[in-house]
Amino acid sequence: MGNHQHHSRTTLRVNGKPHTLTVDHRRVLLDLLREDLGLTGAKKGCDHGQCGACTVLVDGRRVNSCLLFAVALDGCDVTTVEGLSGDGEEPHPLQTAFLERDAFQCGYCTPGQICSAVGVLAEAAAGHPSHVTDTAAPSGEPVELDRAEIKERLSGNLCRCGAYPRIAEAVEDVIP
């Protein structure tokens, strides 16, 4: 694939559904979700990867959707906050935990926090260390998520309302 055009046909699978669109190469995933697909759960807080409000999962990994050109994601699987519960009516356990813990106020960072937390759980299970993981911990083993681990790993998601303690508690609630 290669041309001098400024638009390309791109297919993304979003929350399980394939979407084929002709995208302006400048369009980032966040704007594609919000403007083209009407999925406004992912929020624009800074547009520069500095706040985490736009966090979604691409091929299962949490990323800042404001910094990803959609055209480069051709063929990828995207999960947004709207798709976390799958086909079911029941919310994702993290969404329930956020509600029960009152882990938000204005709600603007909340979808990003929740998607980020989904990613955190997967990363820890896959043995990904963090800045606060004991350097003597065995490599490749799942990392137990204590409070310090949760806080460090979620630090890419700003919350100006200051719901941080409650968010950490909500994540603890769903740790198996």
Partner: peptide, 18 residues
Amino acid sequence: PALSQALLAGASGQLRNA
């Protein structure tokens, strides 16, 4: 270990994934 620690001291989980 210094390399792993340096990476983990930078940016955020989302940014490091990309």
